[in-house]
Simulated assay, not measured.
Amino acid sequence: MARYSPEHKEATRRRMIETAGRRFKSDGIDRSGIAALVADAGLTNGAFYGHFASKDDLVASVVAQQLADQVAVVSSLPVGLASVEAFVREYLSPAHRDDLPGGCPSAALLDEIGRCDVAVREAYTRGASAMIEAIAHHLDDGDPQRTSERAIGLFSLLVGSLQAARAVTDPELSDRILAAGYSSAMALATTPHPPARASRQDTE
């Protein structure tokens, strides 16, 4: 029996995660059977269980990797509002809306992830937290709590806007949802610092 190198095994595992991610986002987690998942990767059922203990194990791995890839993109951008604007514009673009298999894992899978086992939800929690931190790095206004809240708000707004734009059947309404989401996201990203409270001495 041929022995595969660690590099080959890792490449096979990565291919399985990548193809499963596209299948999950396109068809849904529940509707994606192991037979279809292994066929997409050019593997057999036996090979699947050589890399993953179960379908849930694969789902958790997909969620972790997809979010890690997304975080890497945001983290690689030059720090500043220009990068935020470019990311928001691309995220809420018609092209991203129409590319379900290749798009954001949160927008495509959140409803199902909420019903998955705890290992999948923990993988999502770690990934979403890292994504929020990456966004916060671009929004830093000197107040860690306020910056974190704005990053959470921006992350949630982007995901929800994309989900709504994909769900409606009216193309014009879908485009308006994307446009409104963009405007709201940029308003949140550019929220000015609240004015400092005047001291009692200043007002006397």
Rank of each mutant, 00 (worst) to 15 (best):
P192K: 00
K25M: 14
L178G: 02
A198T: 03
K55R: 14
A53C: 01
S161K: 01
E90N: 12
V84S: 04
S76P: 09
A136C: 06
A68Y: 01
L139V: 04
S75W: 01
H137Q: 12
A11S: 12
M131F: 14
A35F: 02
D117W: 01
E7D: 13
A39E: 15
V74C: 09
T125K: 10
V79L: 15
A196K: 12
R15T: 10
T12I: 03
L37A: 06
D98Q: 14
K25E: 04
R176T: 03
Y4W: 11
A107G: 10
D99S: 15
D202R: 05
H138R: 01
F87P: 02
L173Q: 13
P171C: 05
L110S: 15
R13F: 08
A179C: 02
R115I: 07
G160L: 09
S156W: 01
A86Q: 14
D111M: 13
D143V: 01
V120Q: 11
E204F: 07
D30K: 08
R121F: 09
R97P: 06
G28D: 08
R3K: 10
V168L: 09
A123L: 07
Y182E: 11
G102S: 13
M131N: 05
M16Y: 04
D111C: 10
A11V: 09
V59F: 07
T12K: 08
G102T: 03
D175Q: 14
L100D: 00
V159Y: 02
L139S: 09
S61P: 08
S199I: 00
S184Q: 05
D99T: 08
L100A: 11
V74F: 09
T190Y: 05
C104T: 09
Q70D: 15
A107V: 14
H8L: 12
G160M: 11
S83M: 06
A72D: 15
G127S: 06
R150A: 06
L67V: 02
S129P: 00
T190H: 08
E18A: 15
Y49F: 14
P194F: 00
I17W: 04
G181V: 02
I29N: 02
E172K: 15
A136L: 06
V84W: 08
G33W: 10
F87R: 08
A196L: 12
R13Q: 13
S156A: 15
E112W: 06
A39R: 10
S54L: 05
F87W: 14
Q163F: 08
S76K: 02
Q163D: 07
L92P: 09
P101F: 10
V63Y: 03
A189Y: 07
E172V: 14
D141R: 12
A11Y: 03
S61G: 12
Q70C: 09
D111G: 12
R89F: 05
A189K: 02
D202V: 01
V62A: 09
C104Q: 10
D111P: 11
R15N: 13
E172A: 14
H8K: 15
S5T: 15
K55Q: 04
G50Y: 09
A39H: 07
F155R: 07
L178C: 05
L92A: 10
R176I: 01
F87N: 11
P194Q: 00
S83I: 00
A185C: 07
P194C: 00
V159T: 13
T190A: 09
L158I: 08
S32N: 07
D140S: 12
A53I: 00
